Amino acid sequence: MLGLLVNNREVEEIQYLLKREMDEILFDLKDTRIDHIVKRAMEERYTILFALFRRVATHKECMQYILPTKKQKQKKES
C-alpha cells in the first residue's frame, strides 16, 4: 500500500484530470464504429480511473460517473 499527501488544489486537479478522461471514455463507448474488444479495454481502464476518482471525490460526484451495467443499457434501449 502506498500513501500520498496532496493539498486541496492538487486534489481538485486530480479530480479534473480523472473527470476529463472518464468523460472521453464514456463518449467513445457510445461510438458504434469502435470494435467490441477495444470497448472492453476502455471499460477496464474506466474501472481503474473510477476507483482512483472515488478516493478523491464526494459521493455525489461519484454517482454521476457510475458506469451503467449491461442490464441498465438493455432497459434504456427497449
Rank of each mutant, 00 (worst) to 15 (best):
M1H: 14
L2T: 15
L2S: 12
L4R: 07
V6W: 03
V6T: 09
N7S: 02
N7G: 04
N7R: 00
R9C: 02
E12M: 02
E13D: 00
I14H: 04
Q15G: 08
Q15W: 01
Q15D: 10
Y16T: 12
Y16K: 14
Y16Q: 07
L17E: 02
L17H: 09
L18E: 05
L18F: 00
R20I: 09
R20G: 07
M22I: 05
M22T: 08
D23R: 09
E24R: 09
L26H: 13
F27C: 11
D28H: 13
D28S: 06
L29K: 06
D31A: 01
T32N: 14
R33K: 14
I34D: 07
I34N: 01
D35A: 03
H36G: 14
H36C: 15
I37Q: 10
V38Y: 06
V38L: 08
K39F: 07
K39I: 04
A41H: 11
M42P: 08
M42A: 06
E44A: 12
R45Y: 10
Y46Q: 07
Y46I: 05
T47N: 14
T47C: 05
T47A: 12
I48F: 07
I48Y: 10
I48R: 11
L49I: 04
F50T: 10
F50Y: 10
A51F: 08
L52R: 10
F53E: 02
R55K: 09
R55T: 14
V56R: 05
V56P: 02
V56I: 06
A57K: 06
A57H: 12
A57Q: 05
T58E: 08
K60Q: 14
K60P: 12
E61H: 09
E61T: 08
E61C: 05
E61Y: 00
E61P: 10
C62H: 06
M63C: 14
M63V: 15
Q64K: 15
Q64N: 11
Q64D: 11
Y65I: 01
I66F: 10
L67W: 06
L67Y: 01
P68S: 05
P68N: 06
P68C: 04
K71M: 07
Q72H: 11
Q72G: 08
Q72K: 14
Q74S: 07
K75H: 10
K75R: 09
K75C: 06
K75M: 04
K76T: 08
K76C: 04
K76G: 10
E77V: 05
S78V: 15
S78E: 13
